[in-house]
């Protein structure tokens, strides 16, 4: 049997927000180590990889590996019924065709349970090779969201150009051109406000705005975001999830015709 208890169910709400624009359904793979999800968006251009370690949960039990195919619109309906401060317990029997979500209010005076049907999904897992990236940029997640939103007004693509000095985001289209430069922060009071760049080689790559904007739906999960880039390989946009793990988005760079 599978059982996972989460005192603050807001984390799962945020995770759902972070994936439901890209994915209609997904398989949650549960094992002793935790819950993992890997899925491509419908157009197979981007990939979402979620890792929630079992030790982040307040209680976690997984006797046998379990793959839960979930319609994310259905799960969203259920998670909307939970208060942010509710205690969440997810339960499923081995080989079950349904999963139960139980919400308990902090004072335990209200207990709700929702049973959701699981679906069979043809899951295609991709092997993601270990990569030494040429540039690793860490920056405030809110700033990244703002830049993606602002630049998407100017064009369908964003060019990200990283050097030792800083990172430049550019877009161009009918309106004109836009450039946003961020320098490494010299010293900041709070670590989460810092912009840091680890660079082996300068990199310039072009990405579709639409997907970057979808990735920023994860902003609520972490104050910082990490962008990893190398020439001719997918960009990795990573948000850490507190004590649990991370969500990573991969996006293939656009190539010359």
């Amino acid at each position: 049997m599978f059982e996972a208890r989460l005192v603050q169910c807001s984390m799962l709400k945020k995770v759902l927000e972070a994936i439901k624009e890209l994915l209609n359904e997904a398989t949650f793979d549960c094992s002793d180590a935790g819950i993992q999800l890997q899925a491509m968006d419908n157009s197979h251009v981007s990939l979402v990889s979620l890792n929630l370690r079992s030790d982040g949960f307040d209680k976690y039990r997984c006797d046998r590996n379990l793959s839960m195919g979930i319609n994310l619109a259905s799960m969203t309906k259920i998670m909307k019924c939970a208060g942010n401060d509710d205690v969440l317990t997810i339960k499923a029997q081995d080989n079950a065709d349904n999963v139960m979500f139980m919400f308990e209010s902090q004072n335990q005076e209200k207990v709700s349970d929702y049973d959701m049907k699981l679906i069979n999904l043809d899951q295609e897992h991709l092997g993601i090779p270990e990569t030494d990236y040429s540039c690793i940029i860490k920056m405030p997640s809110g700033e990244f969201a703002r830049i993606c939103r602002d630049l998407s007004q100017f064009g369908e693509s964003v060019v990200i150009s990283c050097t030792k000095e800083g990172v430049k985001f550019s877009a161009a289209g009918d309106v004109g051109a836009a450039n946003i430069k961020l320098a490494q922060t010299a010293n900041v009071d709070k670590e989460e406000e810092a912009v840091t760049i680890e660079m082996q080689e300068p990199v310039t790559l072009t990405f579709a705005c639409r997907y970057l904007n979808s990735f920023t739906k994860a902003t609520a999960l972490s104050p910082q975001v990490q962008l990893s880039m190398s020439a001719d390989v997918p960009l990795v946009v990573e948000y850490k999830i507190g004590d649990f793990g991370h969500i990573r988005y991969y996006l293939a760079p656009k190539i010359e015709e």
């Binding site: 491509m40 251009v45 991709l126 092997g127 090779p129 190539i255």
Partner: peptide, 14 residues
């Protein structure tokens, strides 16, 4: 203009 390649061009199916 530029083309948007699919993820499978970079990562192999396991």
């Amino acid at each position: 203009s530029r083309l948007q390649p699919e993820m499978k061009l970079f990562f192999r199916a396991r």
